[in-house]
Structures are given as C-alpha cells and as structure tokens.
C-alpha cells in the first residue's frame, strides 16, 4: 500500500494552480487535505499523473463573513470547527463537523475537499444542499458559481471539470428563527454514516415557514426530500408534523443494500432521523451559538 509515482506540483498561488490545471487537466488531481485522495492512491485505485497540492496557497486558507460564511479550499475541518464565525453564521456546518471522522482526520482534511470529493455518505455535501450553498469554481477561463443543487451529479461526481478548482464555498446566513441539526447513524463512532440527515427548520411565530431535509448515505448523492419539506410548511413544529414528514421520507427514498445496512434499514432510520433531527433542530431555535 504505497503511493504510485506522480509528478508533484505545489503552487504558491491560485493563478499558478489554475495554470497547472489548465495544462494537465485530465491527468491531474487537486490534493487538498489528502484524507480521501491519499488512501485511494495508496490502494492504487487512483493514479493521477500530476498531483497539484494546493496546501501552500495562502489565499485559500480564509474563512470570511459575508451574508453568511465563505470557506476557502484550504480551510481544514478542525479550523472551521473552532471558528466562531462558522458557528454563528453557518450553524449547520458547525453541527456537521464533529461527525466528520476523528480529530486527526479533521486536522488535515478540508471542508471544501469533502464537498469536491462528493462522497454520498459524507456530511458536507448534504449540508450544502440543505443550506443552498454556492460553489465558486475557478479556472483559467475565469470564475463561475454553481448552486449546490446543480453541483452534485452522482456517485463521486460533480459539476467540476478536470481543469477546474473549487476555490470557495459560500454558506448563506441562517436567520434567527431557524434551527439546525445534523443527526446520523453510523456503525462505529466516527464512521461514515449508514444514513444521516442535515436539516434546518424555520418556525418563527409558531408555524413552520421553511424546512430543509438533506439526507446522506441513502443514494448516489446527498438528496433533499421536497415533499416531506413541503408537508411541514404552515404546521406547528410538533411531533405529529415531524412523524408525517418522516412517513413521506420513508416512502420517497430509494436507498440500496451494502454490507453495512439493507435498504429497508436505511429507510427506517431515515424516518427515525427525520423525527429526531427536526425535534433537535427545533430545540436550537433562538439558542445563541
């Protein structure tokens, strides 16, 4: 289990990185925290000819507040976890982070890397869907933005072209009457979830005005269940309303079997998590971060 050979590049600026990507595109991979890419390479399941290590690019290391929070591509999970700005302006991101692997993994892995990697069982893509985050994608052609809903295309596949860099992700601000929660069931503590839910609920004035339910581990990508969300609107945030939404979730999702869980099990816990997640999210409304 040793890495295959590669041409190694460590650009110091985004511009250099984009030039390298433009030049090597199809044969290159971006290396951010390496916590997903390096094991894949050591197992020799992936053998990029060029590795473009973005870890030395200072421009990508910032967390900035701008009607929400923008997280740069080299912000490590642990830095985001410690950030007061993230906690305040992107509470769902903050809620998700403790679930991502273990501390040593979070010390190296990046939030944006996790999004670019697009593992269907990972927390961060679901958080992007639930918060309707915006991806900033850079290349020598210029920058473009893509809504989270259009970004995740399938199993480990995204709207990123080979020559593009996901430079930042913007998570819009949550308003004061919104509660959030990330709940999941994994085999062992710290494992990727068999099923998880990133959810938010706005229940200002005692009725639900908006809700987001983004599941992970149950399909090729993270998925929102629009019918279940719609069923909540206009209702008070009660166990009955949550249970009704859970029933819709169960009827809608179409997960598959693997060695850790059957489809039937995943549906069942998706419903359980809907009830638990919404209750937990509701309990956080108005609680200062």
């Amino acid at each position: 289990m040793k890495n295959p050979p590669f041409n190694y590049h460590r650009p110091a600026t985004v511009a250099e990185a984009l030039d390298l990507l433009a030049k090597h595109g199809d044969d290159a991979k971006v290396l951010a925290g390496g916590q997903s890419l390096l094991p894949v390479m050591a197992l020799r399941l992936g053998q990029p000819e060029h590795l473009i290590d973005i870890s030395a690019i200072d421009e990508l290391k910032a967390i900035s507040v701008n009607d929400g929070v923008t997280i740069g591509a080299m912000v490590r999970h642990a830095e985001a976890e410690k950030s007061a700005e993230v906690k305040q302006h992107a509470p769902l991101v903050a809620a998700a982070l403790p679930h991502v692997g273990h501390r040593a993994i979070r010390n190296r892995g990046t939030v944006v890397g996790s999004i670019a990697h697009a593992d269907a069982a990972a927390e961060m893509p679901a958080v992007c869907l639930a918060t309707e985050a915006t991806m900033t994608i850079a290349s020598t052609d210029g920058a473009r933005t893509v809504a989270a809903a259009d970004f995740f295309e399938g199993f480990f596949s995204t709207a990123l072209a080979p020559h593009e860099l996901l430079s930042h992700v913007h998570f819009p601000a949550a308003n004061a009457t919104t509660g959030t929660a990330v709940v999941e069931v994994s085999r062992r503590h710290g494992d990727y979830a068999m099923c998880g839910l990133a959810c938010s609920i706005d229940a200002g004035g005692g009725t639900i005005s908006s809700a987001a339910l983004a599941f992970f581990g149950v399909a090729g990508t993270a998925v929102r269940v629009a019918d279940a969300e719609a069923s909540l609107i206009g209702k008070p945030p009660t166990a009955d309303a949550f249970a009704a939404a859970a029933d819709i979730v169960k009827a809608t999702l179409d997960p598959s079997d693997d060695i850790h869980a059957t489809a039937a099990y995943r549906k069942h816990i998706a419903a359980t998590l809907t009830r638990r997640g919404l209750a937990e999210a509701t309990s956080t409304i108005g609680v200062p971060a």
Partner: peptide, 15 residues
C-alpha cells in the same frame, strides 16, 4: 447482529 439484523429480528423492518 449488525443494527439492521437487530431490527429484522425485532420485527421492526422486513428482511
């Protein structure tokens, strides 16, 4: 007895 099997045995989910 992984979690899914526990729930199958409990009759909570179908096998």
């Amino acid at each position: 007895l992984p979690p899914y099997r526990i729930l199958e045995l409990a009759g909570v989910i179908d096998r």
